[in-house]
Amino acid sequence: MGSLDGRVAVITGAGRGIGREHALLFAREGASVVVNDLGGANDGSGADSGPAQQVVDEITASGGTAVANTDNVAEWAGAEALVGQAVAEFGGLDVVVNNAGILRDGFIAGLEESQWDSVIAVHLKGHFAVLRHAAAYWKSRSKAGEPVAASVINTASASGTTMPNAGQANYGSAKAGIAALTLVAAGELERYGVRVNAIAPIARTRLTLATPGMGAIFAQEVEEGEFDAFSPANISPVVAYLATEKCPITGKVFAVQGGAISELAGWHDVRTIETEGPWSIEDIANRLPVEG
């Protein structure tokens, strides 16, 4: 028996990279998978049904169950259709893995409006849109008295949590927003039987290979038989665990890379100054220097 037997999962951006590894592992563990991928380029341009269908073909050839979906999750109707397809094809929905993403890097002083909007749309709106329609489905089931044991796994990034990258104001902002969205959603949806977590993965994908200053690191060859710390396959087991019916974890963000999984914590107080009366600018200037 697989750890995800009987579970129905929607996985976005599942035609390549980390998402593909999620889909393959979920299917091996017994889940019925809706493999979503628009099939666009790194910057989100274009569309191709091939990547999603190829993953589905690979799953079905191995005896698993999957269907392809090429809806654009950055569009409200596309996200709604994706959730609807899972329910129509497999009779329900238990897991959402939000993974779809693009890159349109640029330094702030020269960043175009379209570069900002497109990245925020695919990452942050795309996460929210799928989450929103899935949440509405689970809420309706819960209100009808049906048992719900659902799980959402979002995809943040070190760029938005622990390691901001120059040239990625749009991407980092979206990923930080996803981490915050995860915590809000965990608090809101628990009453309906839904757990929400996020991962911040580091792995070799077409996006990381295209990131300036990082491509050479991820492109390093690994000799046959050695552990490949940057393989995207290393990311999927924790996602599969978080998707299991009995997993108790919710409201967490985990950094995942190679053989390491770390729980991340957000903003917290590191130093406080106080006054017993009104603040003066001079007092603040004297007491609030930046400590190197």
Score class of each variant (00 low, 15 high):
residue 5 D to Q: 12
residue 13 G to D: 03
residue 15 G to T: 08
residue 15 G to P: 08
residue 15 G to H: 06
residue 18 I to M: 13
residue 19 G to M: 06
residue 20 R to W: 00
residue 23 A to E: 11
residue 37 D to P: 15
residue 37 D to R: 04
residue 44 G to Y: 01
residue 51 P to D: 04
residue 54 Q to V: 05
residue 54 Q to E: 14
residue 56 V to N: 03
residue 56 V to A: 07
residue 64 G to N: 05
residue 68 A to E: 05
residue 73 V to H: 10
residue 75 E to M: 06
residue 79 A to K: 06
residue 81 A to S: 11
residue 83 V to D: 13
residue 83 V to A: 14
residue 84 G to R: 03
residue 86 A to V: 07
residue 87 V to L: 05
residue 92 G to T: 11
residue 96 V to Q: 04
residue 98 N to D: 13
residue 104 R to A: 10
residue 106 G to P: 02
residue 109 A to F: 02
residue 109 A to K: 04
residue 115 Q to V: 01
residue 115 Q to I: 01
residue 116 W to Y: 02
residue 117 D to S: 13
residue 121 A to L: 06
residue 125 K to W: 01
residue 140 S to R: 13
residue 141 R to K: 11
residue 143 K to F: 01
residue 143 K to D: 15
residue 151 S to F: 03
residue 152 V to P: 11
residue 153 I to R: 09
residue 154 N to Q: 08
residue 156 A to D: 00
residue 156 A to M: 01
residue 164 P to V: 02
residue 185 A to M: 08
residue 191 R to F: 00
residue 195 R to F: 05
residue 201 P to E: 03
residue 201 P to A: 05
residue 209 L to P: 15
residue 213 G to Y: 01
residue 217 I to N: 13
residue 218 F to Y: 13
residue 221 E to D: 14
residue 227 F to E: 14
residue 234 N to D: 13
residue 240 A to Y: 04
residue 247 C to D: 15
residue 249 I to L: 13
residue 263 E to Y: 07
residue 272 T to A: 06
residue 272 T to D: 05
residue 278 P to E: 12
residue 286 N to R: 15
residue 288 L to W: 09
residue 292 G to M: 10
